[in-house]
Design a protein around this nucleic acid. Structure first.
Length: 775
DNA sequence: AGCGGTATAATTTTT
DNA sequence: TTATACCGCT
């Protein structure tokens, strides 16, 4: 049956998925079930069998990383050029589409892409120009409104004007669109929406692409938003006979907060009359106890498509659970355990420390730092987002397009050249009243400011002239000199790192030109603007990079292509790759990764599940899925950890252990600290204090049993008449068990704020409420 | 223009 | 606690 080497070693479900006929199919791919393998093997198999040509493939992912992974694996499987295939991120493919059809899309040929930061400053400018109150129209929220509207497929005229506030927001949205059009830029959501609209409105074009893409595959389908689903339907609508291969996992849907619609999976099944739903439940990553924990936990969610992970690997080690008295103690314990694991032969890069929110990394970082253990924190600034790099890119953008006001404003006075806020305001007024760009309005400003502005414009113009015809590397080097950026950072005391980053920018450009062959994302394919007819269906881009525009014969410049690349792929964050370092990240950023050993820290009510998500059941279910994602990252060892107290916003919070502990199977767990009946029993505290005095936990853990230690004197303030103190565990007949957070007032006035975990935070009058101390 | 003080708010994130 | 924003001063 499996003579074909491609299909060898596939399990029956994977095999079935790979060799499905060309009809719509939904693949429910559990964590660690070989999803990417199925996706790439299917493409390879279809090509090998001659069921489709390379040009007939469209495979969409969310991240550049996933797209790259797919391409790498695919080219390892088959000696096929990936050039003609449309494999990439939603935004990358939109970019490719719009580069080919810029004219029809109503865009300038080398339109540039705004990242979220650029978009924010663009919105800020509009709010200022319209003289609106930034309190009422918070720029961040306005960008959410705009992106949100676009992701619902709504242009300003389509948004329902529910109230005055919305009407004003729509007005800003409208102005924002005009501004983007004037400057020749698009934001991320615009890439999607513009593509969708062009496909919707241009019959020959739609017809062409629908005929071309016989196989459309969408990865992480549970993360698609409304627009992305509608977009997909434009390329492969129901009933047109294309193969649509949607791969996803509803249990790993953790991006509802940014518009993801898990419901798209069910909608897809219904609208496409999907007959083939294949569940990939065989897990190749984790041992049984870990999967038991994951399965049981996620079983507490309703509204699932239903899926259970199984393994043939045996139960493996138990899931270890640890309680600490403080976040500090937790970090110390994690540190010890990491050292133990490392001594036991596990690479540090195979150890992940996961947390719900970024703020939690700090304590752990300092513990690791003090112990001299190398670590890498995910998240944070990425390469192309760093200030000095953005400045350099702004100059490059101005070389490419002097009317890019966002870039103009970023560097008009950086390095300082005597152009102050007043001058800029005058310039903006002039530009606004004439409807022209800042660059075009420079002449309207008189005086010294005006002269300086003119000098700036002359500088950029000179850069443009002098770099004409040079290689990308030379252009950037010229610009770094001429702009004064290099000189500026050379004289700055902490400028050395920045200069290194600017040099790195030159390297990145060089790499882009040579290795990447800057065509992949950025350069137009030879697609006729005027519809099918003359189209070579899957003509690969000729000899790599420089594809002339179908109509004018113009070539997109390497510079414009590089700028596009920089916007679409923000690059890694700073951490030195390659080193054997412990991996620190949020649970969200751990999605898709796997490690030998995983620590999930801060498993406390209010933190994980997060308090902001507790108000509705959808929120709680997403938190639970998040926990599910976290658990399923672990191959061999999983640690769950929580702490009685935690420093948050500069205050000590008294927490209750996460409700998720009650949703895990007892048989799979092993408590390394004594199992608590209620909360904060003296025993655990004594134990922790004993440990913190230096007894160390590793040996006790290693021995597999914990010996009671002599009690340490409790460091608590003197007890007032009601007998309560902060941190006190209490019982309330209605709310159950809780922990006292704050005590106020005296006698009959005395009040206590109590954290009842899932019953929330309560203020109780002690003269009325029946609170029983638990200890 | 740039510095330093105070106020304020503080999940999760990719493109 | 800490990062960022804004204001007022030099």
């Amino acid at each position: 049956m499996h003579d074909d080497p491609l299909l060898r070693n596939l399990n029956p479900e994977q095999h079935a998925a790979v060799t499905l006929p060309a009809v719509p199919a939904l693949i429910l791919a559990g964590a660690g079930s070989g999803k990417t393998r199925v996706l790439t093997t299917r493409i390879a198999w279809l090509l090998q069998q001659g069921h489709m040509s390379p040009g007939g493939v469209m495979a969409v992912t969310f991240t550049n990383k996933a797209a790259k992974e797919m391409l790498t694996r695919l080219s390892a499987m088959l000696p096929v050029s990936v050039r003609g295939m449309w494999i990439g991120t939603f935004h990358g493919l939109c970019n490719r589409f719009l580069r080919a059809h810029w004219k029809l899309a109503g865009l300038p040929q080398s339109f540039q892409i705004l990242d979220s930061g650029d978009q924010l400053s663009a919105v800020k400018r509009i709010i200022k120009a319209k003289n609106l109150d930034e309190e009422r129209f918070v720029p961040k929220q306005v960008t959410w409104f705009i992106a949100g509207s676009k992701e619902e497929g709504l242009r300003p005229r389509d948004v329902e004007l529910r109230d005055a506030q919305t009407a004003k927001l729509v007005e800003i949205y409208e102005a924002y669109e005009e501004q983007c059009a004037r400057e020749g830029v698009v934001d991320f959501a615009e890439l999607m929406l513009r593509t969708y609209e062009l496909m919707r409105d241009n019959d020959p074009l739609r017809e062409h692409y629908q005929r071309r893409f016989t196989h459309v595959m969408v990865d992480e389908f549970q993360d698609t938003n409304r627009l992305q689903y509608a977009w997909m339907k434009m390329f492969a609508p129901p009933g047109r006979g294309q193969s649509v291969f949607a791969v996803g996992d509803d249990d790993q849907s953790i991006y509802a907060f940014r518009g993801a619609q898990v419901g798209n999976m069910a909608d897809f099944e219904r609208e496409y009359h999907v007959e083939h739903v294949i569940k990939l439940e065989q897990n190749y990553r984790s041992f049984g106890n870990i999967l038991d924990a994951a399965n049981e936990l996620i079983g507490h969610n309703s509204r699932r498509l239903g899926k259970n992970l199984r393994t043939e690997a045996g139960p493996g080690e138990p899931v270890r659970v640890v309680e600490s008295t403080s976040d500090f103690g937790e970090a110390q314990w994690v540190l010890e355990e990491i050292q133990q694991l490392h001594r036991g032969g596990i690479d540090r890069k195979e150890i992940a420390l996961l947390y719900r929110s970024n703020a939690q990394s700090r304590v752990i970082e300092s513990a690791l730092f003090n112990a001299g253990i190398p670590y890498r924190v995910y998240g944070g600034l990425r390469f192309f987002e760093r200030a000095e790099v953005k400045h350099a890119l702004a100059y490059l953008r101005l070389i490419e397009n002097p009317n890019d006001d966002t870039s103009f404003l970023r560097v008009v006075n950086f390095p300082a050249r005597g152009i102050g806020a007043r001058t800029i305001e005058q310039l903006q007024d002039a530009a606004r009243s004439s409807g022209r760009s800042l660059h075009q309005s420079v002449g309207a400003v008189a005086g010294k400011g005006g002269a300086n502005l003119a000098a700036f414009v002359a500088l950029v113009d000179a850069m443009r002239e002098r770099t004409h015809g040079l290689t990308l590397r030379e252009i950037i080097e010229q610009m770094l000199q001429a702009s004064g950026l290099l000189d500026f950072y050379r004289t700055e005391k902490e400028g050395q790192d920045r200069i290194e980053n600017l040099e790195e920018l030159v390297n990145a450009a060089e790499a882009f030109v040579t290795q990447e062959g800057f065509g992949k994302d950025a350069v137009a394919l030879p697609v006729d603007e005027h519809g099918p007819g003359t189209l070579a269906n899957d003509a690969p881009a000729p000899a790599a990079d420089r594809v002339p525009d179908a109509e004018t014969g113009e070539i997109m410049s390497p510079l414009a292509a590089f700028l596009t690349h920089a916007s679409l792929e923000a690059g890694d964050n700073q951490a030195q790759a390659g080193q054997d370092a412990v991996q620190l990240m949020t649970v969200h950023s751990a999605k898709g990764l796997e490690f030998d050993a995983v620590f999930i820290t801060g498993l406390e009510e209010g933190l994980f599940p997060h308090e902001n998500a507790l108000s509705d059941s959808d929120g709680l279910e997403e938190e639970r899925r998040l926990m599910y994602v976290a658990i399923t990252r672990a191959r061999q060892r999983l640690y769950l950890s929580f702490s009685q107290t935690r420093m948050l916003h500069g205050q000590t919070r008294y927490n209750v252990k996460s409700r998720f502990f009650d949703e895990l199977p007892e048989h799979a767990l092993k408590w390394l600290t004594p199992r608590q009946q209620g909360f904060g029993s003296g025993y655990a505290r004594e134990y922790q204090q004993a440990w913190q005095r230096g007894a160390g936990m590793g040996s006790m853990v290693g021995a597999g049993r914990i010996e009671p230690r002599p009690a340490a004197p409790a460091l608590v303030p003197k007890a007032p008449s009601h007998g309560l103190r902060t941190g006190q565990a209490v019982f309330h007949t209605k709310f159950g068990e809780g922990v006292v957070l704050t005590l106020e007032g005296q006698g009959d006035d005395a009040r206590a704020q109590v954290n009842f975990g899932r019953h929330g935070m309560k203020w109780l009058a002690l003269s009325v409420a029946k609170l029983t101390p638990v200890e």
